[in-house]
Protein backbone atom coordinates (compact mmCIF):
# COMPACT_ATOMS: atom_id res chain seq x y z
CA UNK A 1 0.00 0.00 0.00
CA UNK A 2 2.69 2.38 1.06
CA UNK A 3 4.76 1.30 -1.89
CA UNK A 4 1.94 2.13 -4.26
CA UNK A 5 1.42 5.56 -2.81
CA UNK A 6 5.08 6.28 -3.10
CA UNK A 7 4.98 5.19 -6.73
CA UNK A 8 2.02 7.46 -7.36
CA UNK A 9 3.78 10.37 -5.75
CA UNK A 10 6.81 9.67 -7.86
CA UNK A 11 4.66 9.60 -10.98
CA UNK A 12 2.89 12.82 -10.13
CA UNK A 13 5.90 14.79 -9.06
CA UNK A 14 8.96 13.60 -10.82
CA UNK A 15 7.92 12.70 -14.36
CA UNK A 16 6.85 16.24 -15.11
CA UNK A 17 9.83 17.65 -13.30
CA UNK A 18 12.30 15.46 -15.17
CA UNK A 19 10.62 16.28 -18.47
CA UNK A 20 10.83 20.05 -18.10
CA UNK A 21 14.38 19.90 -16.72
CA UNK A 22 15.36 17.78 -19.70
CA UNK A 23 13.80 20.31 -22.10
CA UNK A 24 15.60 23.15 -20.40
CA UNK A 25 18.94 21.37 -20.55
CA UNK A 26 18.33 20.36 -24.15
CA UNK A 27 17.83 23.92 -25.32
CA UNK A 28 20.91 25.11 -23.44
CA UNK A 29 23.01 22.31 -24.93
CA UNK A 30 21.61 22.96 -28.42
CA UNK A 31 22.40 26.66 -28.26
CA UNK A 32 25.87 26.12 -26.85
CA UNK A 33 26.72 23.49 -29.44
CA UNK A 34 25.51 25.69 -32.30
CA UNK A 35 27.74 28.50 -31.02
CA UNK A 36 30.66 26.11 -30.54
CA UNK A 37 30.18 24.68 -34.03
CA UNK A 38 30.05 28.07 -35.75
CA UNK A 39 33.08 29.31 -33.84
CA UNK A 40 34.98 26.10 -34.49
CA UNK A 41 34.30 26.39 -38.20
CA UNK A 42 34.89 30.14 -38.25
CA UNK A 43 38.27 29.93 -36.56
CA UNK A 44 39.51 27.45 -39.15
CA UNK A 45 40.08 30.15 -41.74
CA UNK A 46 42.66 31.67 -39.37
CA UNK A 47 44.22 28.44 -38.11
CA UNK A 48 44.18 26.30 -41.25
CA UNK A 49 43.96 28.63 -44.21
CA UNK A 50 46.31 31.25 -42.84
CA UNK A 51 44.00 34.21 -43.35
CA UNK A 52 45.02 36.96 -40.94
CA UNK A 53 42.47 38.33 -38.53
CA UNK A 54 43.59 41.82 -39.52
CA UNK A 55 42.81 41.18 -43.18
CA UNK A 56 39.39 39.75 -42.33
CA UNK A 57 38.35 42.66 -40.14
CA UNK A 58 40.02 45.62 -41.78
CA UNK A 59 40.39 44.91 -45.49
CA UNK A 60 37.80 45.86 -48.08
CA UNK A 61 39.13 43.37 -50.60
CA UNK A 62 36.93 40.29 -50.95
CA UNK A 63 38.24 38.20 -53.85
CA UNK A 64 37.82 34.55 -52.89
CA UNK A 65 37.95 33.19 -56.44
CA UNK A 66 41.17 34.97 -57.43
CA UNK A 67 44.43 33.11 -57.87
CA UNK A 68 45.64 35.17 -54.89
CA UNK A 69 42.43 35.14 -52.86
CA UNK A 70 41.63 38.03 -50.53
CA UNK A 71 39.20 37.73 -47.65
CA UNK A 72 38.35 41.16 -46.30
CA UNK A 73 34.93 41.37 -44.69
CA UNK A 74 34.69 45.12 -44.16
CA UNK A 75 32.29 45.67 -47.07
CA UNK A 76 29.79 43.18 -45.68
CA UNK A 77 30.05 44.38 -42.08
CA UNK A 78 29.60 48.00 -43.15
CA UNK A 79 26.80 47.04 -45.56
CA UNK A 80 24.91 45.16 -42.83
CA UNK A 81 25.41 48.01 -40.35
CA UNK A 82 24.27 50.74 -42.75
CA UNK A 83 21.19 48.91 -43.92
CA UNK A 84 20.01 48.02 -40.41
CA UNK A 85 20.79 51.39 -38.84
CA UNK A 86 19.06 53.09 -41.78
CA UNK A 87 16.02 50.89 -41.31
CA UNK A 88 15.89 51.68 -37.59
CA UNK A 89 16.21 55.43 -38.23
CA UNK A 90 13.32 55.27 -40.68
CA UNK A 91 11.18 52.96 -38.61
CA UNK A 92 11.57 54.27 -35.05
CA UNK A 93 9.73 57.62 -35.34
CA UNK A 94 6.80 55.91 -37.05
CA UNK A 95 6.79 53.11 -34.47
CA UNK A 96 6.77 55.53 -31.53
CA UNK A 97 4.00 57.57 -33.17
CA UNK A 98 1.94 54.39 -33.66
CA UNK A 99 2.54 53.37 -30.05
CA UNK A 100 1.39 56.76 -28.76
CA UNK A 101 -1.67 56.63 -31.01
CA UNK A 102 -2.58 53.13 -29.83
CA UNK A 103 -2.23 53.97 -26.13
CA UNK A 104 -3.41 57.55 -25.72
CA UNK A 105 -5.07 59.02 -28.79
CA UNK A 106 -7.40 56.24 -29.84
CA UNK A 107 -7.04 53.06 -27.76
CA UNK A 108 -10.22 51.55 -29.21
CA UNK A 109 -9.15 51.87 -32.85
CA UNK A 110 -5.67 50.86 -31.77
CA UNK A 111 -6.65 47.57 -30.21
CA UNK A 112 -9.39 46.77 -32.75
CA UNK A 113 -7.57 47.61 -35.98
CA UNK A 114 -3.97 48.70 -35.57
CA UNK A 115 -2.79 45.81 -33.40
CA UNK A 116 -4.19 43.07 -35.66
CA UNK A 117 -2.78 44.84 -38.72
CA UNK A 118 0.69 44.95 -37.17
CA UNK A 119 0.40 41.28 -36.26
CA UNK A 120 -0.44 40.54 -39.89
CA UNK A 121 2.67 42.46 -40.90
CA UNK A 122 4.78 40.17 -38.71
CA UNK A 123 3.21 37.11 -40.33
CA UNK A 124 4.27 38.00 -43.87
CA UNK A 125 7.28 35.84 -44.78
CA UNK A 126 10.49 37.67 -45.62
CA UNK A 127 10.67 36.22 -49.13
CA UNK A 128 7.34 37.90 -49.86
CA UNK A 129 8.74 41.23 -48.65
CA UNK A 130 11.70 40.72 -50.94
CA UNK A 131 9.49 39.80 -53.88
CA UNK A 132 7.30 42.87 -53.32
CA UNK A 133 10.45 44.95 -53.11
CA UNK A 134 11.71 43.65 -56.44
CA UNK A 135 8.40 44.00 -58.28
CA UNK A 136 7.04 47.24 -56.76
CA UNK A 137 9.74 49.21 -54.99
CA UNK A 138 12.65 48.74 -57.39
CA UNK A 139 10.76 49.99 -60.50
CA UNK A 140 9.44 52.91 -58.45
CA UNK A 141 12.92 53.91 -57.30
CA UNK A 142 14.16 53.56 -60.86
CA UNK A 143 11.45 55.90 -62.06
CA UNK A 144 12.32 58.49 -59.42
CA UNK A 145 16.09 58.35 -59.38
CA UNK A 146 17.08 56.51 -62.59
CA UNK A 147 19.79 53.84 -62.52
CA UNK A 148 19.08 50.22 -61.59
CA UNK A 149 16.96 50.62 -58.46
CA UNK A 150 18.77 47.85 -56.55
CA UNK A 151 20.34 49.83 -53.74
CA UNK A 152 21.04 50.38 -50.07
CA UNK A 153 17.95 52.60 -50.01
CA UNK A 154 15.72 49.78 -51.28
CA UNK A 155 17.12 47.50 -48.56
CA UNK A 156 16.49 50.13 -45.89
CA UNK A 157 12.88 50.68 -46.96
CA UNK A 158 12.03 46.96 -47.11
CA UNK A 159 13.69 46.33 -43.74
CA UNK A 160 12.05 49.29 -42.07
CA UNK A 161 8.62 47.84 -42.87
CA UNK A 162 9.71 44.46 -41.56
CA UNK A 163 10.95 45.74 -38.20
CA UNK A 164 8.15 48.27 -37.66
CA UNK A 165 5.87 45.80 -35.78
CA UNK A 166 8.72 44.72 -33.47
CA UNK A 167 9.56 48.24 -32.37
CA UNK A 168 5.91 49.32 -32.21
CA UNK A 169 4.71 46.50 -29.98
CA UNK A 170 7.58 46.85 -27.50
CA UNK A 171 7.29 50.65 -27.43
CA UNK A 172 3.55 50.28 -26.91
CA UNK A 173 4.06 47.92 -23.96
CA UNK A 174 6.53 50.38 -22.50
CA UNK A 175 4.10 53.29 -22.83
CA UNK A 176 1.21 51.38 -21.28
CA UNK A 177 3.49 50.46 -18.39
CA UNK A 178 3.96 54.07 -17.33
CA UNK A 179 1.91 54.56 -14.12
CA UNK A 180 -1.36 56.42 -14.62
CA UNK A 181 -0.42 58.78 -11.76
CA UNK A 182 2.26 60.34 -13.99
CA UNK A 183 -0.42 61.40 -16.46
CA UNK A 184 -2.68 62.66 -13.66
CA UNK A 185 0.16 64.58 -12.09
CA UNK A 186 1.09 66.37 -15.28
CA UNK A 187 -2.59 67.19 -15.95
CA UNK A 188 -2.69 68.54 -12.42
CA UNK A 189 0.25 70.80 -13.21
CA UNK A 190 -1.79 72.24 -16.04
CA UNK A 191 -0.22 70.51 -19.04
CA UNK A 192 -2.18 69.73 -22.18
CA UNK A 193 -2.56 66.11 -23.31
CA UNK A 194 0.20 66.38 -25.88
CA UNK A 195 2.54 68.07 -23.42
CA UNK A 196 1.92 65.24 -20.97
CA UNK A 197 2.60 62.60 -23.61
CA UNK A 198 5.70 64.16 -25.13
CA UNK A 199 7.36 65.47 -21.98
CA UNK A 200 6.35 62.98 -19.33
CA UNK A 201 5.06 59.67 -20.71
CA UNK A 202 7.55 59.10 -23.52
CA UNK A 203 10.63 60.03 -21.46
CA UNK A 204 9.36 57.77 -18.67
CA UNK A 205 9.07 54.87 -21.11
CA UNK A 206 12.53 55.53 -22.55
CA UNK A 207 14.11 52.25 -21.44
CA UNK A 208 11.39 50.11 -22.99
CA UNK A 209 11.46 52.06 -26.23
CA UNK A 210 15.24 51.69 -26.42
CA UNK A 211 14.91 47.93 -25.93
CA UNK A 212 12.45 47.87 -28.84
CA UNK A 213 14.87 49.78 -31.04
CA UNK A 214 17.78 47.45 -30.27
CA UNK A 215 15.56 44.41 -30.89
CA UNK A 216 14.54 45.93 -34.22
CA UNK A 217 18.19 46.55 -35.02
CA UNK A 218 19.04 42.93 -34.20
CA UNK A 219 16.21 41.65 -36.36
CA UNK A 220 17.28 43.91 -39.25
CA UNK A 221 20.87 42.74 -38.91
CA UNK A 222 19.96 39.07 -39.15
CA UNK A 223 17.47 39.38 -42.00
CA UNK A 224 18.84 37.71 -45.12
CA UNK A 225 16.51 36.99 -47.97
CA UNK A 226 14.47 40.17 -48.36
CA UNK A 227 17.55 42.36 -48.22
CA UNK A 228 19.56 40.14 -50.55
CA UNK A 229 16.82 40.40 -53.17
CA UNK A 230 16.80 44.21 -53.32
CA UNK A 231 20.22 45.48 -52.26
CA UNK A 232 22.09 44.58 -55.45
CA UNK A 233 24.84 42.52 -53.75
CA UNK A 234 27.66 44.44 -55.41
CA UNK A 235 30.85 43.73 -53.47
CA UNK A 236 31.87 47.34 -52.81
CA UNK A 237 31.33 50.01 -50.21
CA UNK A 238 28.26 52.07 -51.07
CA UNK A 239 29.02 55.51 -52.44
CA UNK A 240 25.67 56.85 -51.31
CA UNK A 241 22.16 55.89 -50.28
CA UNK A 242 21.24 55.03 -53.85
CA UNK A 243 24.19 52.73 -54.47
CA UNK A 244 24.14 48.91 -54.36
CA UNK A 245 26.19 47.10 -51.73
CA UNK A 246 26.34 43.68 -50.05
CA UNK A 247 25.56 42.40 -46.53
CA UNK A 248 26.93 39.59 -44.34
CA UNK A 249 23.73 37.58 -44.62
CA UNK A 250 23.45 38.19 -48.37
CA UNK A 251 26.91 36.89 -49.20
CA UNK A 252 26.28 33.86 -46.95
CA UNK A 253 23.04 32.86 -48.68
CA UNK A 254 24.56 33.32 -52.13
CA UNK A 255 27.86 31.50 -51.72
CA UNK A 256 27.32 28.92 -48.96
CA UNK A 257 25.79 26.23 -51.16
CA UNK A 258 28.29 26.65 -53.97
CA UNK A 259 31.51 26.25 -52.03
CA UNK A 260 33.03 23.03 -50.76
CA UNK A 261 33.49 22.15 -47.08
CA UNK A 262 37.06 22.64 -45.95
CA UNK A 263 38.13 25.10 -48.63
CA UNK A 264 39.45 28.50 -47.58
CA UNK A 265 36.46 30.15 -49.25
CA UNK A 266 33.96 28.05 -47.32
CA UNK A 267 35.81 28.60 -44.05
CA UNK A 268 35.88 32.34 -44.70
CA UNK A 269 32.09 32.23 -45.05
CA UNK A 270 31.90 30.46 -41.67
CA UNK A 271 34.00 33.27 -40.25
CA UNK A 272 31.47 35.75 -41.62
CA UNK A 273 28.76 33.73 -39.87
CA UNK A 274 30.79 33.93 -36.67
CA UNK A 275 31.11 37.70 -37.01
CA UNK A 276 27.34 37.89 -37.50
CA UNK A 277 26.85 35.83 -34.35
CA UNK A 278 29.14 38.08 -32.30
CA UNK A 279 27.36 41.20 -33.49
CA UNK A 280 23.99 39.76 -32.44
CA UNK A 281 25.56 38.86 -29.06
CA UNK A 282 26.56 42.46 -28.77
CA UNK A 283 22.95 43.52 -29.37
CA UNK A 284 21.68 41.10 -26.74
CA UNK A 285 24.20 42.40 -24.20
CA UNK A 286 23.10 45.92 -25.09
CA UNK A 287 19.44 45.05 -24.43
CA UNK A 288 20.39 43.54 -21.05
CA UNK A 289 22.38 46.63 -20.13
CA UNK A 290 19.50 48.93 -21.05
CA UNK A 291 17.13 46.74 -19.04
CA UNK A 292 19.37 46.86 -15.97
CA UNK A 293 19.79 50.59 -16.17
CA UNK A 294 16.01 50.89 -16.37
CA UNK A 295 15.55 48.89 -13.16
CA UNK A 296 17.83 51.13 -11.18
Amino acid sequence: MKEKRRLNYWKNEYIGRILVTFCGLLIVITTLSIIAFICGKGIQSFTENGISLKEMLFSTEWKPSDSHPKYGAVIFIVGSMLVSIGAVLLSTPIAIALAIFMNFISPKFGSAVLKPVLELLVGIPSVVYGWLGVTLLIPLLREWFGGVGFSLLAGIIVLSIMILPTITSIASDALSGVPFSYLEASYGLGSTRWQAISRVIVPAARTGILTGIVLGLARAFGEALAVQMVIGNTVKLPSGLYSPTATLTGILTMDMSNTINGTAWNNALWTLAMILLFISFFFIVLIRMIGQRGER
Partner: peptide, 21 residues
Protein backbone atom coordinates in the same frame (compact mmCIF):
# COMPACT_ATOMS: atom_id res chain seq x y z
CA UNK B 1 34.96 44.21 -62.11
CA UNK B 2 33.17 43.58 -58.80
CA UNK B 3 32.48 47.25 -58.21
CA UNK B 4 30.17 47.76 -61.18
CA UNK B 5 26.63 46.57 -61.61
CA UNK B 6 24.67 44.29 -59.31
CA UNK B 7 24.63 40.60 -58.42
CA UNK B 8 21.59 38.32 -58.66
CA UNK B 9 21.41 34.97 -56.96
CA UNK B 10 19.74 32.74 -59.56
CA UNK B 11 18.73 32.42 -63.21
CA UNK B 12 15.21 33.48 -62.23
CA UNK B 13 16.41 36.59 -60.41
CA UNK B 14 18.63 37.47 -63.38
CA UNK B 15 15.66 37.12 -65.73
CA UNK B 16 13.52 39.38 -63.54
CA UNK B 17 16.27 41.99 -63.30
CA UNK B 18 17.06 41.92 -67.04
CA UNK B 19 13.41 42.28 -67.98
CA UNK B 20 12.88 45.27 -65.74
CA UNK B 21 16.21 47.13 -65.98
Amino acid sequence: NEAIGTVQDSNGAVEQAINST
